[in-house]
């Protein structure tokens, strides 16, 4: 079967779902973070695929920006995790439930 847009999109959907699975299942904040990165990358893949099949360069530019923003986000997020760990000696979501009633 000839590979088309749908195939890329299906790969993207699979990656997105796996990323979400990581966010929901893993209790380590860092691994949850990795799940988030996976989801972002799934979106990137979809955008690039759309860009190629629709003959529009904007999709790739969007990916470029996403990668930049993701880099910034990762740096800030990891800094937050480090700061949190220093305060609580843990990076597990179950230990970080003080924001509740």
């Amino acid at each position: 079967m000839k590979v088309g847009l749908e195939h890329y999109l299906l790969i993207s959907a699979g990656l997105f779902s796996l990323g979400l699975l990581g966010v929901i299942l893993r209790r380590n904040l860092l691994v949850m973070y990795m799940g988030l990165e996976l989801m972002l990358n799934a979106a990137n893949l979809a955008l690039v695929a759309f860009s190629r099949y629709n003959k529009n360069l904007d999709g790739q530019l969007m990916v470029f920006f996403i990668i930049t923003v993701a880099a910034a986000e990762v740096s800030v997020g990891l800094a937050l995790i480090v700061a949190l760990y220093r305060r609580r000696q843990s990076a597990h979501v179950e230990d970080l439930t003080s924001l509740k009633f």
Binding site: L5, L9, A13, S17, R52, Y53, L57
Partner: peptide
């Protein structure tokens, strides 16, 4: 997601053309 993608036939009639 999968059913949506398969049903929508998003890539129907499209060919990979863009050279990024």
């Amino acid at each position: 997601l999968a059913t949506t993608i398969v049903r929508s036939h998003a890539g129907a009639g499209l060919t990979p053309e863009l050279e990024g």
